[in-house]
Simulated scan of single mutants.
Amino acid sequence: MSCGYRNTTERMVIVRCCGPDQFYLERVVFPFELLSFHCPPEGDVEIWTHGLGGPELLERLQGRELLIEQPFTPAAMNVTTEATPWLQTG
């Protein structure tokens, strides 16, 4: 899935996404920056920052909460391939 996270804080944060099949993504996001990334539907996203006492977990989200756009499938639009021959493969 295509996901997005905007850092609305005035501090740099670290976005970590963990998912099935050993999926792992870790990126630094600067203040007011938008990070676009791909994440499995079952992925968990954590937002971390560094405070005086060390790393601090700011937020924990599911990947679905950061979805930018719905995946396109004919079934999602209630479209049949008989009515739209251009959707057929082969």
Rank of each mutant, 00 (worst) to 15 (best):
T8A: 15
T8R: 15
T9M: 09
T9H: 09
T9G: 08
E10P: 02
R11C: 07
M12L: 13
I14F: 10
C18S: 06
C18A: 04
G19T: 04
P20F: 03
D21C: 12
D21G: 08
D21W: 10
Q22C: 10
Y24S: 06
R27M: 10
R27H: 05
R27V: 05
R27Q: 14
V28F: 08
F30Q: 11
P31Q: 08
F32I: 03
E33L: 08
E33C: 05
E33Y: 09
E33Q: 14
L34D: 06
L35N: 02
F37T: 01
F37L: 03
C39A: 15
C39T: 13
C39V: 08
P40W: 04
P41N: 09
P41M: 08
G43R: 00
G43T: 02
V45L: 00
V45R: 00
V45T: 00
E46N: 03
W48M: 06
T49V: 09
T49C: 13
T49S: 08
H50D: 04
H50K: 10
G51Y: 04
L52T: 07
L52G: 09
L52S: 08
L52F: 06
G53T: 13
G53M: 13
G53H: 11
G54F: 08
G54M: 10
P55F: 14
E56R: 11
E56W: 10
L61E: 01
Q62D: 07
R64I: 12
E65R: 10
